[in-house]
């Protein structure tokens, strides 16, 4: 086969698989933001925390108990979901109706807190002044070498797994929201929380449920993140959070299926932009992330033209 055709096919495959992971990472925040209008800027830190749980699991439990590292995904789901419950009761509950800024600051404090915990659990603590750069960071990655090879194309096994998890979990979440009582109550709370209250819905329960569920899904995404990436403590802020926001807005806030498609769009944009020959930029000594430039540019254009995203109505519908 012609190399450019192979590259093209490979870009599609990589983009779709990567997009599945992005969707999985974003769907929880889309739920939380859609229901409560809370921009949880610690969502990236939740994912990275779960990634470190999985790494620790594979270092400790896998050799001694002979458990597959994938088993840690359940642990991630429970732990980060539990963290979500604690965060909801300690931080969010008192300020969820007091505008956009207070929850934003609270979750920002939380992300600094979690990043500290992750970093101090991992060797050298970096420079303490926020105005200076971050110091040495531990890098970990597990399980990444296995790949399936089909003719000239290859697929990394963990990427395939995270893609499969995304395309199973997200439709299930969609069905949960559209078919079950609690799912509908969550949607009702998102569309008009006051009307939900005087319809007899306990909105404190539905908000807790959506926050906990959204966090737990970040946990699953974090587990998969550890299989496919070198994880450093600050990746939540520097890499995941912006991508997640782009996916959520592209897909439409609160639309689960939209988030899945938004994930694919971003995954494909990133993988295709790698096809362009940017080697002329190497003469400057390093390669800028042209993919991110293109992705964020597409994001801003969509935000202008369709502020509610490609599929969304602004809340969990």
């Amino acid at each position: 086969m012609d190399t450019s055709l192979v590259n093209f096919a490979q870009a599609i495959i990589s983009g779709i698989l990567l997009g599945g992971f992005f969707a999985l990472a974003s769907v929880g925040l889309s739920l939380i933001f859609g229901v409560q209008r809370i921009l949880n800027v610690a969502h990236g830190a939740f994912i990275v925390l779960a990634a470190f749980v999985t790494i620790q699991f594979s270092l400790v439990a896998t050799p001694s108990l002979h458990l597959n590292p994938l088993a840690s995904l359940g642990l991630d789901f429970m732990l980060i979901g539990g963290l979500g419950v604690c965060v909801y009761f300690l931080l969010i509950r008192r300020i969820e109706n007091s505008g956009f800024e207070a929850p934003l600051l609270a979750t920002f404090g939380l992300s600094v807190f979690l990043e500290y915990i992750i970093q101090s659990g991992l060797g050298p603590i970096p420079s303490i002044d926020p105005s200076h750069g971050q110091g040495a960071q531990a890098e970990h990655q597990i399980y990444s070498s296995t790949s399936l090879i089909v003719g000239p194309l290859f697929v990394q096994e963990p990427e395939l797994i995270s893609f499969l998890i995304a395309i199973i979990i997200i439709p299930i979440l969609h069905l949960f929201l559209s078919r079950t009582y609690y799912g509908k109550a969550i949607r009702a709370t998102a569309q008009d929380w006051l009307a939900a209250e005087f319809s007899g819905i306990d909105i404190r329960k539905t908000r807790l449920l959506s926050f906990a569920l959204g966090s737990a899904l970040a946990g699953v995404a974090g587990g998969m993140f550890a299989f496919t990436n070198s994880v450093t403590p600050l990746l939540g802020d520097t890499y995941l959070l912006p991508i997640i926001l782009v996916v959520i807005i592209l897909g439409g806030v609160g639309s689960m299926i939209g988030t899945l498609i938004g994930g694919f769009v971003v995954g494909l944009l990133l993988s295709f932009s790698e096809l362009f020959d940017s080697s002329y930029l190497f003469r400057f000594g390093f390669q800028p992330d042209v993919g991110y430039l293109i992705t964020f540019l597409v994001f801003l254009i969509v935000l202008m033209v369709r502020p509610n995203g490609l599929f969304g109505k602004g809340v969990v519908k």
Partner: peptide, 24 residues
């Protein structure tokens, strides 16, 4: 009480402007 508890006590409320759930 919270509003949903008032509802549970047997009072229902039809607000000004109806406030239905538009996407349902």
């Amino acid at each position: 009480l919270y509003p949903h508890q008032v509802v549970a006590r047997g009072i229902a409320y039809v607000p000004e402007g109806r406030r239905l759930f538009p996407s349902m």
